[in-house]
Amino acid sequence: MIDVDGTRQAARQRALPQTDALPAPHRRFDQVCAPGYHGRKQGEVVRTRTVVLQAHTHQLLGTFGGPGNGDYRGELRRAIGVITSYATHLGVAPAFMLVRLDGLYGDAAPLLG
């Protein structure tokens, strides 16, 4: 059984000090976060993350994410690729792999279309 869990996390950004004595300010979250839907969470920017792991051993098979609301379908395609590769490595037919979708994938909306 493989667990695919997608999450969306909001990040807060504090005010950056700007004086002549300090170097030019920059934000560390610019590369991994972007404006997006926060839900009920407080924050100025968000990021998504998808984790793929084997449920009974908690063996991490892969983790990937994107800035903003992310690309749910793309991340799910990557998860399916990881699961297929893992099944091939074990010598098991992918049809025998049971996949459990949690988090962002819980309502099946990313599966449509």
Rank of each mutant, 00 (worst) to 15 (best):
R77W: 03
R8S: 07
E44P: 08
A55L: 04
Y72P: 05
R78Q: 07
H26G: 02
S85E: 01
G39Y: 01
V46I: 06
E75R: 00
P94A: 15
I80D: 02
L98N: 08
P25W: 13
G39C: 04
Q9N: 00
V92I: 13
A55S: 04
T63E: 10
H38W: 05
A93C: 05
A87Q: 02
Q18D: 11
L22I: 00
P94T: 09
A93H: 08
R12C: 07
D102I: 11
G81M: 10
T50W: 10
G68L: 14
G113S: 06
Q42I: 01
V99G: 15
T57S: 14
T63H: 12
A21N: 14
A21H: 14
S85L: 04
G68M: 15
A79F: 02
G66V: 01
V99K: 12
Y37C: 00
G6R: 02
D5V: 09
L76M: 12
L90Y: 00
A93V: 00
S85G: 06
V92W: 03
G65C: 02
L76I: 11
V52A: 06
V92L: 02
G91K: 04
G36R: 13
D102K: 15
V92C: 11
A79W: 04
V32T: 05
L76G: 14
L53K: 10
L60K: 01
D30T: 11
A109N: 10
G70H: 12
H26C: 08
Q59Y: 10
Y105C: 06
Q42W: 07
G81V: 14
Q9M: 06
P110T: 13
F64L: 01
R8N: 00
Q54H: 04
A21Q: 15
V32M: 03
P94S: 11
T7L: 07
M97E: 15
Y37Q: 02
S85K: 15
P23R: 05
L112G: 08
R14T: 12
E44G: 13
F29E: 02
L16H: 02
G81Q: 14
G103I: 11
T48E: 09
A21G: 05
H56G: 13
